[in-house]
Write a protein that binds this DNA or RNA. Structure first.
Lengths: 163, 163
DNA sequence: TATTGTTATACTCTATAACTATA
DNA sequence: TATAGTTATAGAGTATAACAATA
């Protein structure tokens, strides 16, 4: 019997073995299951790596997008990150209170807030991204550069469907 | 500047455009980001497909594993699904109260509960897995069978590292 | 009328510790 | 002394509705 989707925690509270030998089910061919488990590992590693910088995966994502050239609105952040706009408010509040980003009304649409990283934010981002990159490299340490590039391409088709 | 990890919601509260045109950042090459976004889409689709059967991705996963030949313990479920054992209690409670699974003490270690699907549970699983499979096929509709097989293989290396 | 950002609230999920019974 | 399951609880994340300012 084949199957559907799975989802798992990004962090674990207790120390459990990595791959329990006694539960080897025939699930390791399921795309949704593998997606969920791989993401859980990625998320846990990312949060652990970013904790030293006072960031989590969420806030790090917002900070990085704010440091880009596009100067996204909060609405734009919500859409790209698949978050509710009301959740973005709290993330932006936190980063702004720490002086890492600023909110500025968009001159062309004064309803919208353009979110931009400060110099302090960019400096923190540089340090944090080094840690994050280390964690990510551990994640795909068992893949060749070619395999990694191919995985990225295939995943992109899932994450951003052509239609 | 390259980067690290991301994580996003499995479901969205409001209707937001799929891929906002105004926020095209250079993030679409990042493995962690793509993993998070692909999983978010997979999770949302899976939960939507399973809702008609009174299941979520979590409870569906437990039900399917309980219906397998291995008859996992709750600890085994927790390890494989990367959940805390205390979370498994609630999932098993719910499925058992609906007559879909049973808990039985393991004769060889009476501390452990072996979780097994009932006939009713197997029947529900059969119906639910058809819905879940439909949802999953939509997810990788843009991939050829070869691409899909390759994606599964590469993801497995991430989800279950050889070391 | 519709949209952006915001607030508030209820709900679910996650993290942690402590307890019991078995080993 | 260690492990499986359980309970309780605090915290984080998610879903939803409503409002003011602007379009």
């Amino acid at each position: 019997m084949r199957n559907g989707s799975f989802a798992y925690a990004g962090g674990m509270s207790r120390d459990l073995p990595e791959v329990p030998a006694e539960v080897e089910f025939a699930l390791t061919e399921d795309l949704s299951f593998l997606l969920a488990r791989a993401n859980a590992l990625s998320l846990a590693a990312g949060n652990a790596a970013l904790a030293a910088h006072g960031l989590k995966v969420r806030s790090y994502s917002v900070l990085m997008l704010a440091a880009g050239a596009q100067h996204p609105s909060q609405r734009g952040l919500a859409e790209f990150l698949r978050l509710d706009p009301s959740q973005v408010v709290a993330l932006v509040d936190d980063l702004q209170s720490r002086g890492l980003i600023v909110r500025e009304p968009d001159p062309s649409d004064r309803r919208a807030n353009v979110v931009t990283a400060t110099d302090k934010g960019r400096a923190l981002l540089a340090a944090a991204s080094a840690s994050a990159r280390e964690a990510e490299e551990l994640l795909h340490a068992d893949l060749s550069p070619q395999d990694r590039a191919q995985l990225v391409g295939l995943l992109r088709t899932i994450a951003f469907p052509p239609a």
